[in-house]
Design a protein around this nucleic acid. Structure first.
Lengths: 246, 246
DNA sequence: CCGAATCATGGCATTCAGTGCCAGGATAGG
DNA sequence: CCTATCCTGGCACTGAATGCCATGATTCGG
């Protein structure tokens, strides 16, 4: 055994410096792996390479992370469990809770650009990693959907699935734009995120209202320019109701 | 070389019968592989095993399918390209075209229960395969989203993403229920599928209307029980408009 | 009908991810 | 101080995936 504890690694220069400490933290390993991936490509980077670069044995890497891909997404997994716990403990209005949860996920990306940004470029380049990333967001979507179904009733499971998918889609929409252009100001990104969430919430709210699931109910959605006179709106809705009379 | 052409395989009895023909069809290989997977489990089934069971060499299996997982999802890939081609050639109302495309996907599952049903159980059992399945639906969602954005204008890209996600969610909702209980009548399944599509279309349509993207516009969503008198609906909407007056 | 070019196939060797097994050192607990 | 438990690393092995090459099949021009 060469190391009795952790190691701080400097790569890029090729020199490795090991410092005896407690143990190599997960974050250190992830950062080192991300660096190797972006420099040499994902598949051309071997677990042996990561092992020698971090000072953690190949065997221990597999034990702690499970697989080479899992190194890239390990902190993402932690975030997921955090978000799920948060949801389970949310007695609030379900839709608001889901919005907050989505906000936590978004925050998880913004908080750690040193990992999420290079990972984004890796994910774009390798279909395999892309699938993995997609699977992650699908896990969030599934968690949101189950949470909503549980809170608003099983009669609205379809609506819950649609709303969860919409929230995730809006989240990813803003997230991708930031990943493509991370130089945008943080405030501006958050503003666009909140706008997107408000947008999708407005559209989703009525779907989750009690009684909205019954097929015998009717939903009326009217859309009109902001300049339209209220009376004109009422006239149009009235005619729509007449033509839709049962 | 042992075989000059295709092979028809009977497994379960363990006997393999090879018949000289053109070449082992993709479908035959997939069915054989699915049989082995369900019988022995996915990871315990080796490519060597599939090779000997089908009469196709291990090397050719990799060449034709790419990987062990890809054998399971190969016909799914074909369907995807078909759907994308269909979308590209659809000059219709974009939302209707997406609905039709979703219908094609659903049909793709119902048409071939001999593959999709055992695959569903495999996917449920193995997280890795589940990720793969999720990635497939994400590809559809992405294709739908891009198609919608292209047709309704880039100003509605967020709306396109949300609508695509909603359509996929509704599709998957009905699909999963069928996969769980495939004994349900085909007509009933299609009825529920069409209901779900109508449901999500109704909610999605206004999001894609021209001008809906501008923030200065207002959207009014009214929800009321089916028994409500039209006049009462108008009164409620009128009061809502008054309280929302700019 | 035949020769040549192209392509698909199979066999072989190699790399590397992932796992089981075991030994040694660290740590906690009595 | 001794022991039980846990974490780590080394070793060996399976199997997926790929590159290379030879061979057989197919197609096409003559």
């Amino acid at each position: 055994m060469k190391y009795t504890g952790g190691a701080v690694i400097l790569f890029g220069g090729g020199t490795e410096v090991a410092v005896a400490q407690t143990r190599v933290s997960t974050r250190e390993v992830v950062l080192a792996a991300v660096g190797l991936f972006t420099e040499y490509g994902f598949e051309r980077t071997t677990m042996d390479g990561i092992a020698t670069a971090t000072g953690v044995s190949r065997r221990s890497l597999f034990r702690r992370f499970g697989s080479k891909e899992d190194i890239l997404f390990s902190e993402h997994d932690e975030l997921f469990t955090t978000v799920v716990r948060y949801l389970d403990a949310s007695p609030d209005d379900p839709l608001s809770a889901v919005r907050s949860a989505a906000r936590m996920v978004f925050q998880g990306y913004l908080r750690d650009p040193g990992i999420t940004l290079p990972r984004y470029h890796l994910v774009r380049a390798h279909p395999r990693l892309r699938d993995r990333e997609v699977a992650m967001t699908a896990r969030y979507q599934s968690a949101f959907s189950h949470y909503l179904t549980e809170r608003v009733g099983t009669g609205l499971s379809l609506a819950s699935g649609v709303v969860a998918a919409s929230v995730i889609a809006a989240h990813n929409h803003v997230l991708r734009s930031w990943l493509r252009d991370p130089d945008e100001g943080v405030d501006a990104v958050w503003a666009r995120f909140d706008d997107a969430m408000a947008y999708v919430s407005t559209a989703a709210r009525p779907l989750l209202e009690p009684g909205a699931g019954a097929q015998s109910d009717r939903v009326l959605v009217a859309l009109y320019p902001s300049g339209t006179d209220n009376g004109e709106v009422l006239r149009r809705i009235g005619s729509a109701l007449d033509s839709d009379a049962t």
